[in-house]
Design a protein around this nucleic acid. Structure first.
Lengths: 100, 100
DNA sequence: TCGGTAATTAGCAAAATACCGAATCATACG
DNA sequence: CGTATGATTCGGTATTTTGCTAATTACCGA
């Protein structure tokens, strides 16, 4: 799970995810949206892949990247759960004394 | 908002946030939960402060750190909104194929 | 097989990050 | 005052991250 946080820490990678949210794109197509070099972008793709946030599909010589929405969603939900957010006093556990 | 992502990227800082979720603690008290040196922890506190995730209250010579739950919640909500999560069937765009 | 295109890997420099010990600041107490 | 305590800031080092160019791999078409 640590890889997901690290992957989200970089603004370029967050931009990539936002682009992929609209539609799947090839590596070159994605690279066209940035001023960074292709190898640099390729490195960002690898980080996102290892975090499980995107899926790479090789067709011919081109590689199409697709957003793994479910993984991203799970990661954020796990994050919120970890901090006790998203649940409105579920009553499943007694949350600390909180003696104001 | 970038500061929030960066702050969450470090496991030690996430641990600090989880500790603070249970109750507010002083800097020294927090440091007692880690093997890291106090200056190192102090640096982590600063990052969390600058991200707005915690609030520091100085009483005597001691500084008590308190979690800003609302800021953390907002940050995560903003994160999910940015990626179009939290809303079911966006209907704002046609998600290609997606057969099966 | 040869040339061209798409993308990655290799190798390296620069910047950011994390860590520590020592020094410093601020407050409390005798 | 002088000292002790809680915490931060300072100076330095090691590691990680980010970026580049050049070289490499993989595939397609003529």
């Amino acid at each position: 799970m640590d890889r997901v946080y690290k992957a989200l820490a970089d603004p370029t990678r967050r931009d990539i995810l936002r682009l992929l949210r609209q539609r799947a794109m090839t590596a070159g197509e994605l690279a066209g949206h940035f001023t960074l070099s292709k190898p640099t972008l390729s490195g960002h793709f690898a980080v996102l892949r290892e975090a499980g946030l995107v899926h790479a599909e090789k067709v011919g010589t081109t590689i199409t990247y697709r957003l793994h929405l479910s993984v991203l969603e799970d990661a954020l939900r796990c994050l919120m759960d970890g901090f006790g957010l998203g649940e409105r006093s579920t009553a499943t556990h007694k949350p600390e004394g909180e003696t104001s």
